[in-house]
């Protein structure tokens, strides 16, 4: 018999290294004598979209098209340390470093333009498409190329705030900021085979501010799939320190047939310390899937599982025990 059930789970996750560990990102922003905008960071792109959102942030601050920005990344001979692409920290930490550097660069450019245009004030000066102009009198203008004789380069550092927890009491504030998630799922449990099928998912994801909604959706899909595998499929089978399920024929991860269609709800609540309010979501999007699925299994067959993955053999042995 096939039995259906629904479950929800809400989670929160602290991004960054946390627990007092130094969490530092450095970025360099420059405009060279040809007026080119170059950004140097070392935010490793693994497909999550770090490069895309960094370029988006620079474009927003400097009024440029994304193709006008030259991003130099992942080359340690040319870039400073921006820490690892881990702990869901690149958007927040490196994003903050880039934003700081580009904002300082922008104010230097405006200062130079003020002198060049012989203006008494910075008021009303705008930057767009590599031209600085006076908003109220746009003929008063100068392009980057004519403004800059020697390249202007700005290096900025962002250091996250984090408090080491008290070893005795476990008290402290290890992370800042936190990212919140809430998923609801519907499952169908086959009581004859023990196979669990996740047939629908609704994912509400707090992001602070959605710099790139399409990338966020992609992260939610991917995270849900990892969480689904974590909850009901993926088993390393460690024996005496050795991983027994060391190939895809034994270590099963979700295929396209295992993934349900997902309804995604992006929740925007800008974080005051974040670049444009945006927080990291890379790991947070994984977390609620497995507990939501386990709650749905309980709703379907009345069995509470405390260990993952809930594989068909475990489901069957619990059902048979009930009988």
């Amino acid at each position: 018999m096939k039995k259906r059930g629904k479950g929800i789970a809400a989670t929160f996750y602290g991004t960054g290294y946390g627990n007092g560990f130094p969490d530092v990102s450095k970025a360099v922003a420059e405009v060279d004598h040809d007026g080119n905008v170059n950004i140097y960071v070392c935010a490793t792109e693994v497909g999550q979209g770090a490069k895309t959102i960094i370029i988006q942030m620079v474009a927003e601050i400097l009024g440029l098209g994304m193709n006008d920005i030259h991003l130099i990344s992942e080359d340690t001979s040319q870039t400073l340390d921006t820490g690892t692409a881990a702990a869901s920290r690149q958007t927040y930490n490196t994003g903050n470093a880039v934003k700081k550097a580009v904002e300082v660069l922008k104010s230097k450019l405006l200062e130079k333009a003020k002198e060049h245009l012989k203006l008494p004030s910075l008021l009303g000066l705008e930057v767009k498409d590599k031209v600085i102009y006076l908003k109220t009198f746009p003929k008063k203008r100068v392009c980057f190329k004519d403004l800059i004789e020697e390249k202007i380069s700005v290096e900025e550092t962002f250091t996250a705030q984090t408090v080491q927890m008290d070893e005795e009491t476990g008290q402290g504030a290890p992370y800042w900021p936190y990212t919140f998630s809430c998923y609801g799922v519907e499952v169908e449990v086959d009581t004859e085979t023990g196979i669990i099928e996740v047939i629908k998912g609704v994912c509400a994801q707090d992001v602070g501010r959605a710099i790139n909604p399409e990338l966020i959706e992609g992260q939610i899909d991917g995270g849900f799939s990892m969480g689904l595998g974590y909850g009901i499929m993926e088993k390393l089978n460690c024996k005496d320190g050795e991983i027994k399920n060391n190939k895809f024929s034994k270590y099963l991860i979700p295929t396209a047939l295992d993934m349900p269609e997902l309804e995604k709800i992006i929740v925007e609540d800008p974080e005051s310390s974040a670049p444009f309010g945006a927080k990291g979501i890379g790991e947070p999007v994984i977390l609620p899937a497995a507990p939501a699925i386990l709650n749905a299994i309980y709703d379907a067959i009345g069995v509470r599982f405390y260990e993952i993955p809930v594989t068909p053999d475990k489901v069957l042995s619990e059902i048979n025990r009930e009988i």
């Binding site: 992609g218 991917g222 995270g223 991860i253 295929t255 396209a256 047939l257 993934m259 269609e261 997902l262």
Partner: peptide
Amino acid sequence: TREEIREGISGNLCRCTGYNKIV
């Protein structure tokens, strides 16, 4: 159909995308 597409790519594992955008 979307289900036929899922079946068509079910021999290809993807760890990042969760398949939905591929479908």
